[in-house]
Design a protein around this nucleic acid. Sequence first.
DNA 1: TGCACTGTATTATGGCACTGATGCACTATG
DNA 2: CATAGTGCATCAGTGCCATAATACAGTGCA
Lengths: 113, 113
Amino acid sequence: MNKKQPVYLKLFETISHAILDGKYKDGDLLPSVRAFASTQGANPLTVAKAYQLFQDRGLVTVKRGVGLFVANGAVQKLRNAERQNFIDNSWPEISKHMHRIGIELSDLIEQEG
Amino acid sequence: MNKKQPVYLKLFETISHAILDGKYKDGDLLPSVRAFASTQGANPLTVAKAYQLFQDRGLVTVKRGVGLFVANGAVQKLRNAERQNFIDNSWPEISKHMHRIGIELSDLIEQEG
DNA sequence: TGCACTGTATTATGGCACTGATGCACTATG
DNA sequence: CATAGTGCATCAGTGCCATAATACAGTGCA
C-alpha cells in the first residue's frame, strides 16, 4: 500500500543493507557525505540526514574532518535491532493480515526453494 | 520503520477489514460519509477520499443522493486482490528482509499456537 | 603554513500530500 | 414543492520533505 519513502530513509536503508551484507564491517570508513551523495544522485544534506540516524543509534563514530566509521559492534547491534523490530512490530501485523486474507505460512514455504 | 499512515488510508483499511471480515456483504449499504466520519472522529472529506479508492477499484456502486453500496462480487474481488498483492509485492520484500537479518520461516511457525 | 578534504549549522525556498471549511448537485420522502 | 439526507468539487491552510547557497570547524598532509 505505502511504497513512497523519503529519500533520506531510502539512503538509510541502503547503508543498513550494505552493513548487514558485510560490505562495511566494524571500524570501516563509510563514504563521505559528498561522495555518497554524488554516487546516489542525492543532495549532500539529505545524505547527512540519513547518516544522522546512525549517529542517533550509536552505530557510527564521527571523526570530524576525517569521516564516519562503523562503530565497534555496530554490525551485530544493527542486526539485533532489526531482528527485534521485525519480531515485535512487523511480524504481528503481517501475521494478522495473512490470516485475514486466508494465507498460511505453509503456503509460502514452497516458494523458498 | 514507517508506521505513519495517512488517515484516509487507515480508513480504507478499516473498511477493507470490515468487508473481509464479513461485516458488509455484496449489496450492503455502507455508512454515509458524514456518519462514518462522525464515528471515526475524522473529517467527512477524508472519509470521502477513502471511499474514492473503493470506487477506483470498482468495489462500490455509487447512488448519488442515496449512498454507497458494496458492488456485486466485491467481497471476493477484494480478497483476491489483497492476496495477489501480498504474494506479488509484500511477501518478496518481507522474505528478502527476513533472510537479510537471519530469520527463517521456521522460526516463526511456533508462535502461531 | 597552506591546502584539500572531512562533517555540521544556518537560513531560505519550492513542492507535495494531508486536512479542513464551505457550498453545490442529486435523490428519496412526504 | 419542501426538506433532509446523500456524494462531490473547489479553495485554502499546514507541515514534511528535498534542495540550495553559505559558512564554519576539525583533520591529514605536503
